[in-house]
Design a protein around this nucleic acid. Structure first.
Lengths: 254, 254
DNA sequence: CAATCTTTGTGCACGCGTTCACAAAGACAT
DNA sequence: ATGTCTTTGTGAACGCGTGCACAAAGATTG
């Protein structure tokens, strides 16, 4: 039936706004790059430019974490890296299982971004018996039958679903029943989960459709405005972000 | 929010809210499933449940497209599929190029969701000469040198970047210079583009970090509340958006 | 120590998006 | 026709997120 979810403030006293949480990884990435270049401090203006956001927004975001900056100077890079990492929970180990080792699952398993930040691929799981034992990204694929045992034995709380749409809900149910409370879903399906379980979805098809919409709109405008349209070529750091509203997710290569 | 485009209301006269546009593909998917089951009509309540959203929100979303429903009955499935497809620009052909044919690029090339909705993989491009000519998903990979010619000859306006982070901006620049105006970026980098070019990003690392944040928060709550926590188990359609309950702080002091 | 300069932290206003709640519209039965 | 019942379409209120603009804080210089 309806979403019986008890409506709650969502932004609690000590709670950090969801929009801010979604940007923290972005800041962390920029800060890590600065750290590797041994840059000691950075101003909100500089960091904001690197992350592709407004500096005022960045300062407000950081203000939710506490006052870690020094007026007249900026933020200490190393300290900020630590604070954000801690806030995001990246200072601890997060074993992750990937279910569905097809093209996408294999790509995810090979993704270097996993180990880099506390995430560890604890196991690769596939329903195809023929896959069992075959190593992917150096990790032997295990059969779905082992799912519950794997989750339990490794204390896995985060699961990645990369199966066909038809199998996603079933896999999801088993993951949740086994103790997983956070799911990253790559299957083009709406997953139904109990309260307390977080689901984020990454859907290539949806992304493309959104782009097509804007593309069509641009074409229409251009036609309507005659030839005198779209001249703009001023290279800018406008980084047309459309990710802020906690919208879409992603994937990515090393 | 959408394109960081300064001029232009963003919500034009005929403009559909960005949040609504992002949900249209979701509705379309649910409607397509109903269509395949030959369901003639559907109520906002039913469709909303299938798409995992609030029914009032769905009705408001549709109201931006026009009045396609019949009070007392619901919406005509076939008609709605057509209207949404048209609105999203899926009734026309969208040639797409994928740049960077590594694990992820290959997975994307093999992804069936492409052809299904007007998207057609026009070409696969990689910088590695060794890849040139090798077929992936039945399409021979072409070298980066051909990029401009491919874009021009095929009238490509949508590009997918699946290269390593270091090459992304350069590839992006070439795509834009060649005429691409919509980019789906899988590389973990902030892309800088001129006005008029839309960029959407998909970042696995960010998604996992957001999940880790909530996971950590949940663990903290559980610990703080002792054993009397997280009892809820009512199976519900509370899908996607994470940000549900946000109880106890769970944030340690600095 | 005082003056000046830089940059943070935030109060405030604005706009988008969500949700409720209900009147209007149409189907359907009598 | 008239009445009842179902479901849409939307007015209005509310909350979140964004960005401006500025006072406060601290560094730096003389």
């Amino acid at each position: 039936m309806a979403t019986g979810r008890t409506h709650r403030p969502a932004t609690r006293s000590r709670g950090i706004p969801e929009a801010t949480v979604a940007r923290l990884p972005l800041y962390l990435r920029a800060l890590t790059a600065l750290s590797e270049r041994s840059v000691p401090t950075v101003s909100s203006e500089e960091l904001a430019a690197a992350a592709g956001v407004n500096s005022a927004k960045l300062r407000k975001d950081f203000s939710y974490l506490g006052s870690y900056g020094t007026r007249g100077v900026g933020y200490d890079v190393e300290y900020l890296v630590y604070q954000i990492s801690r806030e995001l929970g990246l200072t601890q180990d997060w074993p992750v299982v990937i279910v569905g080792i097809g093209n996408l699952g294999a790509a995810l398993a090979n993704y270097g971004g996993f180990a880099s930040r506390g995430f560890r691929v604890a196991a690769l799981i596939d329903a195809d018996p023929a896959m069992a034992g075959r190593p992917v990204a150096g990790i032997p694929v295990q059969h779905t039958d082992e799912l519950e045992a794997i989750i339990r034995d490794n204390g896995v709380s985060i699961g990645v679903i990369a199966t066909p749409a038809g199998a996603a809900q079933q896999v999801c149910d088993r993951l949740v029943a086994a103790g997983v409370t956070s799911i990253l879903n790559f299957a083009p399906t709406v997953l139904s989960v109990p309260d307390g379980v977080d689901v984020r979805k990454v859907d290539l098809s949806i992304e493309l459709q959104i782009l097509a919409f804007h593309e069509q709109r641009k074409a229409g405008e251009e036609a309507a405005a005659g030839t005198a349209a779209v001249p703009a070529a001023t290279r800018e750091q406008s980084a047309t972000d459309q990710g802020p509203d906690g919208d879409v997710p992603a994937v990515m290569p090393a």
